[in-house]
Simulated assay, not measured.
Amino acid sequence: MSFFTSLSGLKGAQTDLSVISNNLANVGSAGFKKSRAQFSDVFAGSPTQSSKTQAGQGSRLNAVVQQFTQGTLEATDKTLDLAIAGEGFFVTRGEPPRAAVTYTRNGAFQVNTNRQVVDTIGSTLQLLPVDANGNVTSATIASATNFVLPTASPTNPNVSLINVSIGIDGLVTATYADGSDQMLGKIAMASFTAQEGLRPIGDAHWQSTGESGQPAIDSPTNGPLGSVRSGALERANVDVTEELVALISAQRNFQANAKAIETASNMTQAIVSIR
């Protein structure tokens, strides 16, 4: 029995090493959120047995839980590099016909050939409609539209676009060569009651699930969403020193369980060899 108990500990230590390795591998990934392996003990006994004389039967993986703590903001030179100081997520939409909605903290946006502002997986950043005063008129995913850079002024096609600015409240303003401005909308952001329930799909993107609950959509600076910082990116929230210490601990755990298996094997061999 001790052989299988130690084997469960060996598997747990291996999983812990895998999670820590993944955290360290993504130190340089923008918007990455570290994870932590959570384990629980295994105990089994019949109602007629005394728990005082029963030993545990090992451990099992309970969950690999993501840690959505704030990462460090790093300044860049690009207006379309966006970072969130808060708990919100950017809302992005994929290409039709699927048009999958995903949520990300990776604000490394760029412009594609269709002048859409897209993220690292090609999904388009969503904007909420605003009125003449810059106030959001509808805060739902259905009302959000793709962030598309205009080529010229809506009132004069001969006047070209010269600048785009993004405020901390997510308001996107286009400036044209004749000095006129146009508010394109506010960046759509989402918050979740249970962030740990989000389903990771890679590239610092997540999808909502029944465990995360439905997203609350709004513009930046509202509630827990936080503000948007143009010209900055959020670094991974991985502390290398902390992860290295955890790596050493997981390695020691792995070695101890391997030694326990070796000891159990030697004991069994000794018993079998008795004449």
Rank of each mutant, 00 (worst) to 15 (best):
A260R: 11
P215D: 11
D218H: 15
T92R: 07
G223P: 13
L7H: 01
K259C: 03
R199W: 02
N22K: 07
L17Y: 05
A174S: 03
I121A: 06
G86R: 12
S40Y: 09
I201N: 07
D203W: 06
Y176C: 00
A174T: 01
I274P: 02
A246Y: 09
V245L: 03
I168T: 15
N253Y: 00
D41K: 08
T76K: 11
G58E: 14
T69Q: 14
K34L: 04
Y103Q: 03
G134S: 00
R229G: 05
A177F: 01
A55G: 11
F39E: 13
N106L: 04
G197R: 13
S6R: 02
P96N: 05
G223T: 09
I271W: 05
T53Q: 14
A204C: 09
V136C: 08
M267E: 15
K186S: 10
P200M: 05
N257H: 12
A25R: 01
D181R: 09
P47F: 10
V240S: 11
N22M: 06
A194G: 09
S143Y: 01
S35C: 05
S21Q: 04
S191M: 05
I274T: 15
T102W: 01
T263W: 07
N135Q: 00
T124Y: 01
G28T: 05
P129D: 02
G28W: 12
A83N: 08
Q195P: 12
V130F: 00
M267A: 08
T209F: 04
K34F: 02
I84P: 10
G179T: 00
R252S: 07
I141W: 03
T69A: 13
G223S: 12
E74G: 08
A174D: 10
A75H: 13
T140S: 15
G9D: 05
S143C: 09
N62T: 10
A30V: 01
Q214E: 15
S212V: 09
L149N: 10
L149Y: 08
T155Y: 06
G28H: 10
Q255L: 05
L10Q: 02
E262K: 12
D178A: 06
A190N: 09
A264Q: 11
F32I: 11
D203R: 11
I162S: 14
I141A: 09
G231A: 13
N106G: 03
G202D: 12
A204M: 10
G71N: 14
A232Q: 09
S51M: 15
Q66I: 11
I271P: 05
G231W: 03
A13G: 02
T120K: 14
Q126P: 02
N163R: 10
A83E: 05
R98K: 08
A75S: 14
D16M: 02
K186M: 06
I166V: 11
A260Y: 13
V42A: 01
A232G: 10
S212Q: 12
V27E: 03
F192Q: 04
D218W: 13
T79W: 07
A152Y: 06
L17W: 08
T268Q: 15
P224D: 12
